[in-house]
Nucleic acid binder design. Structure first.
Lengths: 257, 257
DNA sequence: TAATTATAGTGAACGGCGTTAGCTAAATAT
DNA sequence: ATATTTAGCTAACGCCGTTCACTATAATTA
C-alpha cells in the first residue's frame, strides 16, 4: 500500500526525510553552540529522543553526518552568493557581480563562523582545489562531495571572470586588463592554464587572466579566513578595509572603477 | 641533600624536566602521526610508561599540554626564520631578509603541516593579532602565551620593514616605496597606524607603509595556509608560484628587484 | 487475506577518552 | 629523626563512537 502509485514519495520516505532533517537540525544547533568537535552523536540522539544506535540507520558515522552538514552549508553559501550577484546587476555587469561574490562570501563566512570553521577543517573539503591533479583524471560525479561543492562556489566567480574577459575582448575600445605576471616556466604556465583555467574558470583564458584570478583568489581567501578566525589585524573598520583591499586588487589588475 | 647549594638545578628538577620532555616528545609523535585531535593523554601515559593520572602532576589538562607544545613550535619556527634571515644578509639587506622571512615561514609550515595545523586551530593562538584591541590595554607579559609567540613571529618581519623604511628614508636618492592605498576614513587610518604600526612593526610608520605591510601580510598568510591545507590550486610548481607572488607583491609596492 | 521481507527502533556491551579523589612510598627539608 | 613535599598509583565517574543481537512495525508479495 505505497503512495508511490501516485508518483510522490513513499510515506516511509517522507518520515525518513523528516527524521534526517531533525538530526541535522540538532547537529547544527550543537555546532553553533559548541563549535566543531562539540557535536556528539549521543547528544543528538538525546535531543531527537532516540537511542544512539538508531542514528546509524541514517548516517554511516559521525564524520559522514558532518560531511553532509558541510555540503548543506556550501549550498547555503552558494545560494546566498547567487542572490547577491543577481542583485548586483544582470548581464554586462560582470565586474559588479564579481565584487558581489567576494562581498557575500565574506559576509556569509563572518555571519556563520562556526559553519565556516567546519567547512575549512573538514579534511576532504580543505583539499578541495589542491586535488586538482587527480581531479583531471576523475569524472565530476566521482569527486568527494565537499570538493565538488567547493569548486562550484569558486566557479561562480570564475565564470564571471570569463564573461568579463569576453566582454572586454569583444569591445576593442576597452582592450585587455589583467595583472602582468613575472616570467613563468612552461610547467607553471601549463599548470595554471590547465587547472585554474579549465577547472575553475571553466574555459581557457590567457595566462595573464588566469594568473590574476589565482592571485586574487589567494588574497580573498586570506582575508576571509583570517577574519573568520579572528586573526585580522584590523578589527573595528573591517568592512572599509575589505573594500580598500578590493580596490587595491582592481588597481593592481589595471581595472579602474 | 639538594644540589642547589652548588647553584645548579635540583636533582628533582632535572628529573622533572626530563619527564616533561618525554611527555612532550610522545605527544609530538602522536600529533605527527594522527594530527591534532589524535593526541590522547592515555596514549601518552602508555608510551611514557606511567598511569594517566600521573600526567596531571606535569600539566593541568590535555589542552594546556597542547598549548605548551604550540609555544615550542613557535619557538622552532622563529628560530629557523631567524637563521634564514641572517643567512640572507646582515645590515642593509632588509629586503632580502624580508624575503627570507616569507620563504622560511612557508617552508617550515609545509614541512611541518601537522604542527602548523595545531598552531592555527589552537583557539587563543588563532585570535593572535585579532586581539590587538584588548592588547593595547594589556601588558605584554599578561598576553596569552601563544598570542605572544605569534606576534613575536610577525614582528620579525615588521622590524625589518621598519629598518628598510629608514634606510630608504635616509638615502634621499631612493625616496619612498610603498603601495598607495585608496582614500581611507580617519578611523581606519588610526586603527592601521595604532595596531599594525605600533604593535606589529614596533614603531610608527607612514600610512602607506603600514597599509602595504598589512596587505602583504594577508597575501602571505593566505598562501601559506592554503598550501598547508592543500587548497592551493597550483600543486606541481608551488615554489615557483610563490616566488612569482612575491615578485608581484614587490611590484605592486613599487619596489624593483 | 496471509506470509514474507525490509526497515526503524531497542538495549547492552566494548573499548576508548579526560579528569578527579584518595591513598602510598619515596625524596627532600627541617 | 621527623615532618613535609612530591611523584606515583588504583579506582572510579561520566562521557564518547560504534557494533551486535534482537524486536516490533510497516510495506510488499503470494
Amino acid at each position: 500500500m505505497s503512495s508511490n502509485t501516485s508518483g510522490g514519495p513513499t510515506r516511509r520516505e517522507r518520515m525518513r526525510a523528516e527524521t534526517i532533517g531533525e538530526i541535522k537540525a540538532s547537529a547544527q544547533r550543537q555546532l553553533l553552540e559548541h563549535g566543531p568537535g562539540g557535536v556528539s552523536l549521543r547528544a543528538i540522539a538525546r535531543e531527537v529522543g532516540v537511542s544512539p544506535a538508531a542514528l546509524y540507520r541514517y548516517f554511516d558515522s559521525l564524520d559522514s553526518l558532518l560531511v553532509e552538514l558541510c555540503c548543506d552549508f556550501y549550498d547555503e553559501l552558494i545560494d546566498e552568493t547567487r542572490r547577491a550577484m543577481d542583485a548586483a546587476g544582470g548581464e554586462e555587469c560582470h565586474l559588479d557581480r564579481m565584487k558581489a561574490w567576494i562581498w557575500s562570501f565574506r559576509s556569509w563566512a563572518v555571519a556563520n563562523r562556526r559553519k565556516f570553521e567546519l567547512m575549512i577543517n573538514i579534511p576532504e573539503g580543505a583539499a578541495a582545489l589542491g586535488l586538482s591533479l587527480d581531479i583531471r583524471r576523475l569524472s565530476w560525479e566521482d569527486l568527494p562531495p565537499v570538493t565538488r561543492k567547493s569548486m562550484e562556489h569558486a566557479q561562480q566567480c570564475g565564470a564571471e571572470l570569463a564573461a568579463y574577459y569576453h566582454q572586454r575582448n569583444d569591445d576593442e575600445a576597452l582592450g585587455f586588463a589583467a595583472l602582468e605576471p613575472p616570467e613563468l616556466s612552461d610547467g607553471l604556465q601549463r599548470e595554471l592554464r590547465e587547472k585554474c583555467g579549465a577547472l575553475i574558470i571553466g574555459e581557457e583564458l590567457p595566462l595573464t587572466w588566469v594568473y590574476s584570478f589565482v592571485s586574487g583568489w589567494v588574497r580573498v581567501f586570506g582575508l576571509v579566513t583570517m577574519e573568520a578566525f579572528g586573526s585580522l589585524p584590523v578589527q573595528e573598520n573591517i568592512e572599509e578595509f575589505y573594500k580598500a583591499q578590493v580596490l587595491s586588487m582592481m588597481k593592481d589588475f589595471g581595472i579602474e572603477p
